[in-house]
Design a protein around this nucleic acid. Structure first.
Length: 464
DNA sequence: ATGTGC
């Protein structure tokens, strides 16, 4: 399929409709020549073509430069579906519903943090539970959990964990209206009940960083970012609760496919019409899981603040922004001069409305970026941009290659303190398992889907 | 991603 790509310019490739039978729209892949060489054999591109076959798709089946193979839809994929004729698909959101990033900033300087770095990192590691299956000290009744699912980060602030400014600097104010907790299974609730305030595992992390480079002074100052100052990045999602919601609704959608006579090229793309009862129940449950994820990041941010306050009294941590990388939203867009209401699936992709902060976490030991959304993204990609470096090695392949390596020491040699819950996860997350994040960011910057504001370098990282 | 796996 790779030789069916037509280069449009330095950062855009077109996958024409002729590439795969049934494509209703072409594919649009954001890639320069380096990213093009990184496109996996074919599997992720095939997934771009498959998504283009789904009912009601508008515009293109998009792939951001961090694209790699995922469940049904590629990770780094974006697709908008007409609200009346289109579908909603759990595979287009991903297993970790509303996995995302929260960034806090400070006026603490790198030199001030160096003498206490080990103690601070250890304190953060013990204050924020991490790892697969980790649980927190926050024990909720099912009634309280329903409140979290309805109110999101607002619930945490109401309980004394954070402030109004945090909500003002969170996507959707930290709470999605229309969450339907009555359609979230009791199994999902049971799994999530004791996991609020936990980091999880995989690519999730809690990182102390320093602002290494500023590209846009005005935007950086609006976001409370200044060169040489410390930031804290929190990357996590909806834990077992979101995972179970995805699992539950994949089953629901498989049944709905027969009921609504929807035909798709891959079973993993199972979906239902947006306006169907199954579609509406998934959307309500997905929103509930997203509220859980936003509450989770709000709580972790609050715990991080408490720990920092012990080391740096009187030097607060300010909210920069909190944004999701795995979500579907009903949004109004103008496409080919026509007002359209669409359901935009962003799976491993970030919303990028004009002026909105975009947070791009790097892989372990590498830089992260802050960008800002653009009018161009609103016009061209349903206000979407990339979400990270994107894998080039599978988890298994990465672990194989780390045999005999001491990743903690290698990170220390790079000047990054690492504390981890699991050696296996460290191997999966080795830097070589990912593309060069700077190259990914350069593509979306050149395509003007979002513009570079600041580069953040890791100082200490906590991995689940 | 995940009370990790056919």
């Amino acid at each position: 399929m790779k030789n069916l790509l037509k280069r449009m310019d330095n950062v855009r490739l077109l996958l024409e409709k002729e590439a795969f039978p049934g494509m209703a729209v072409p594919g649009l892949i954001y890639a320069d020549h380096y990213i093009e060489t990184m496109l996996e054999q074919d599997s992720a591109l095939e997934q771009v073509a498959h998504v283009a076959c789904l009912p009601g798709i508008v515009g293109y089946s998009y792939a951001m430069p961090d694209i790699h193979w995922g469940y049904g839809f590629p990770i780094g994929g974006v697709a908008a579906f007409d609200v009346n004729e289109g579908i909603i698909s759990p595979g287009g959101v991903g297993y970790d519903i509303s996995c995302g990033v929260r960034l806090l900033s400070s006026y603490i300087k790198l030199a001030d943090i160096k003498p206490v770095l080990d103690a601070l990192t250890t304190a953060l590691f013990s204050a924020v539970p991490s790892g697969v299956g980790s649980s927190s000290a926050i024990r909720l009744s099912l009634k309280d959990l329903d409140d979290v699912l309805r109110k999101g980060a607002r619930w945490a602030v109401k309980e004394g964990m954070g402030m109004q400014d945090d909500l003002d600097r969170t996507e959707e104010g930290g709470c999605l209206d229309g969450a339907l907790c009555e359609f979230v299974s009791s199994r999902a609730k049971e799994r999530g009940k004791n996991q609020l305030g936990t980091l999880g595992s995989g690519n999730h992390f809690l990182e102390i960083q320093v602002v290494d480079e500023i590209f846009d002074k005005a935007a950086a100052s609006q976001m409370n970012l200044e060169s040489g100052s410390i930031t804290v990045m929190i990357h996590c999602g909806s834990r077992g609760l979101g995972h179970q919601v995805c699992d539950d609704y994949l089953k629901v959608m498989r049944r709905a496919m027969a009921k609504y006579k929807i035909d798709v090229p891959d079973r993993q793309l199972c979906c239902a019409p947006i306006q169907s009862e199954e579609g509406q129940q998934y959307i309500g449950s997905m929103k509930a899981a997203a509220n859980f994820a936003m509450a989770n990041r709000q709580i972790i941010g609050s715990v991080v603040r408490d720990v920092f306050a012990q080391f740096f009294p009187g030097k607060p941590l300010f909210p920069v922004y909190d944004v999701s990388h795995n979500m579907a939203h009903i949004e109004k867009h103008i496409w080919e001069g026509r007002k359209r209401e669409v359901c935009v699936h962003r799976k491993g992709a970030t919303r990028a409305f004009e002026g909105q902060p975009v947070l791009i976490p790097g892989s372990m030991g590498t830089a992260s970026y802050v960008l800002v959304g653009t009018k161009k993204a609103e016009m061209e990609s349903f206000a979407s941009t990339c979400h990270g470096a994107g894998r080039v090695l599978s988890r298994n392949e990465a672990v194989k290659r780390t045999r005999g390596q001491n990743l903690v020491r290698e990170m220390a040699d790079r000047g990054v303190t690492v504390k981890a819950d699991s050696f296996r996860t460290l191997g999966e997350e080795m830097p070589e398992a990912y593309k060069d994040i700077s190259a990914v960011v350069e593509v979306v910057h050149q395509a003007q889907l979002s513009l570079k504001v600041a580069k953040l370098k890791p100082v200490a990282v906590i991995k689940g």
